[in-house]
Write a protein that binds this DNA or RNA. Structure first.
Lengths: 132, 132
DNA sequence: GTGGGTGCAAATAATTTGCACGGTA
DNA sequence: TACCGTGCAAATTATTTGCACCCAC
């Protein structure tokens, strides 16, 4: 049952929270803005507020249920946190987002931070690409 | 003379444009938000509008005189485009931004895009780090 | 029952735009 | 003198917050 994850995050199990979580689970691997989530969920639920979506998303992000990404186009997108880290490639023609993971890349980043005397905490990396 | 670059960009050489360009040249390697530029430049010029700063910055960006970066904290920062590409490391404790370049990293990115059947057009990569 | 959670509308924050005036070529 | 460029204020967009009501525990 989905309520489990919410409860474990120390949050009360409420309808809006369930709806957001269910929607994201039903669309794993896809990315949504708060507004997209609002519109899509409202299509079936009718009484949910955009503000609540924002509130729920930040709570989920803090709880590690959800990951937030800020692409260059301005607004933030959210996706379910599957526990497996990955980076993103955005097709600048179609806007399509592809997830990928490269061990080599992760290691290189650690190495670079280290080289400058830092410890790597997090990173944000987006490749803007175009179909060949 | 600085006006040269502006003229070459196909823009009329005006006071606000000169001021922004001069300020950025006087502070190379540093990053500023539109508002910071506004406040700092206004300190010596007095009649310049924030809207103009935004307009000038987008024009400069389009002309390749300036590079815009979107860090995770929300607002965009600008810096002079020296022609040498580099990425950024942000110290999450101090907010300090350090520039770095790694040939290996650039190559790896090309390689990854290629692997997925894409051509790499641009990328955005920020390492969030902490002093050891 | 009661305190956290919610919807709505109003408030922010960053950025953009409309418009009449001013300065550059 | 042409028009582009500017300052200012109002408009937009994404997100946050205040507040009275509601629901999970």
């Amino acid at each position: 049952m989905k309520g489990q994850d919410i409860k474990e995050a120390g949050l009360k199990v409420t309808l809006p929270r369930l709806h957001v979580l269910e929607f994201l689970e039903a669309h794993q691997g896809q990315h949504f803005t708060a507004d997209e989530l609002f519109t899509q969920i409202r299509a079936t639920v009718s009484d949910i507020g955009l503000a609540t979506i924002y509130r729920v998303l930040s709570q989920f992000e803090a709880a590690g249920l959800v990951v937030k990404h800020q692409f260059d186009n301005g607004h933030a997108v959210y996706e379910l946190d599957t526990g497996e880290h990955h980076d993103h490639m955005v097709d600048i023609d179609t806007g399509e987002v592809k997830e990928f993971f490269s061990k080599k890349l992760e290691e290189l980043q650690e190495q670079l931070a280290d080289e400058y005397g830092y410890e790597l905490i997090d990173h944000n990396m987006v490749l803007y690409v175009k179909k060949k």
